[in-house]
Lab assay of single mutants.
Amino acid sequence: TKVFYNGTYVEFNNPEKAKKYAEKVAKKVGGTFTEKNGQFHVE
């Protein structure tokens, strides 16, 4: 499961961990995250 952010991504074996990371990054940058095709995108 990949989490895309700012033109790069971090890959996780565990979708649950990926979601938590996406939430954390989104919170940090004051943005939101969306799930597309089983991957997370932070905006």
Rank of each mutant, 00 (worst) to 15 (best):
T1Q: 05
T1P: 06
T1D: 01
T1I: 13
T1S: 09
K2Y: 10
K2S: 05
V3H: 00
V3G: 00
V3L: 02
V3W: 00
V3K: 00
V3R: 00
F4D: 00
F4Y: 13
F4E: 02
F4S: 03
Y5L: 07
Y5N: 03
N6G: 10
N6K: 12
N6T: 04
N6S: 07
G7Y: 06
G7D: 07
G7H: 07
G7E: 05
G7R: 06
G7A: 05
T8P: 01
T8F: 13
T8A: 10
T8E: 08
T8D: 07
Y9S: 08
Y9M: 09
V10W: 13
V10M: 10
V10D: 03
E11F: 11
E11R: 10
F12C: 11
F12H: 02
F12I: 03
F12E: 01
F12M: 03
N13Q: 13
N13A: 14
N13W: 10
N13S: 14
N13I: 11
N14Y: 05
N14M: 06
N14P: 01
P15L: 11
P15Q: 10
P15I: 12
K17P: 05
K17T: 14
K17H: 13
K17A: 15
A18S: 02
A18P: 00
K19D: 02
K19F: 08
K19N: 03
K19G: 04
K20H: 10
K20D: 11
K20V: 10
K20Y: 09
Y21S: 01
Y21T: 01
Y21K: 00
A22F: 02
A22K: 02
E23N: 07
E23Y: 09
E23T: 08
E23D: 07
K24M: 15
K24D: 12
K24F: 15
K24E: 15
V25R: 05
V25F: 12
V25C: 14
A26M: 03
A26K: 01
A26S: 07
A26W: 03
K27H: 10
K27A: 11
K27N: 10
K27M: 12
K28W: 13
K28I: 13
K28N: 09
K28P: 02
V29F: 11
V29D: 04
V29A: 06
V29Y: 11
G30I: 03
G30V: 04
G30K: 08
G30L: 06
G30F: 06
G31W: 05
T32E: 05
T32I: 12
T32N: 07
F33S: 06
F33G: 01
F33E: 00
F33Q: 03
F33R: 03
F33W: 14
T34P: 00
T34N: 07
T34M: 10
T34Y: 15
E35C: 15
E35Q: 09
K36R: 14
K36H: 09
K36G: 04
N37S: 07
N37R: 07
N37M: 08
G38S: 05
G38F: 05
G38I: 01
Q39E: 13
Q39C: 12
Q39K: 04
Q39F: 07
F40W: 13
F40P: 01
F40E: 01
F40D: 01
F40Y: 13
F40M: 05
H41V: 11
H41T: 08
H41L: 09
H41R: 06
H41M: 09
H41E: 06
H41D: 04
V42Y: 03
V42M: 03
V42Q: 01
V42S: 01
V42I: 14
V42C: 03
E43D: 09
E43P: 03
E43Q: 12
E43K: 10
E43G: 09
E43M: 14
